[in-house]
Simulated assay, not measured.
Amino acid sequence: MKLYLIIASFLIVQFSNAQEAYNTSTPKVWSLDECIAYAIENNITVKDALLNTNIAEVNYDRAKST
Rank of each mutant, 00 (worst) to 15 (best):
Y22F: 12
N23L: 12
T24S: 09
S25L: 10
T26Y: 02
P27K: 10
P27I: 07
K28Y: 10
K28F: 08
V29T: 09
V29M: 07
W30E: 06
W30L: 13
S31H: 00
S31C: 01
L32W: 06
L32D: 11
D33Q: 15
E34S: 04
E34M: 03
C35P: 00
I36S: 01
I36Y: 00
A37V: 09
A37F: 03
Y38S: 08
Y38G: 00
Y38I: 00
A39S: 11
A39E: 06
A39I: 02
I40S: 03
I40V: 14
I40C: 09
E41N: 09
E41H: 05
E41D: 09
N42W: 04
N43R: 04
N43G: 01
I44P: 07
I44C: 02
I44E: 15
I44G: 07
V46S: 01
V46L: 13
V46N: 07
K47V: 04
K47S: 13
D48E: 13
A49C: 05
A49V: 09
L50D: 03
L50T: 05
L51A: 12
L51G: 05
L51V: 08
L51Q: 10
N52Y: 05
T53V: 09
T53I: 15
N54I: 09
N54G: 14
I55K: 14
I55P: 03
I55L: 15
A56H: 06
A56D: 02
E57P: 02
E57C: 09
V58I: 15
V58M: 14
V58S: 06
Y60H: 10
Y60T: 12
D61G: 14
D61H: 10
R62L: 15
R62A: 10
R62G: 02
A63L: 12
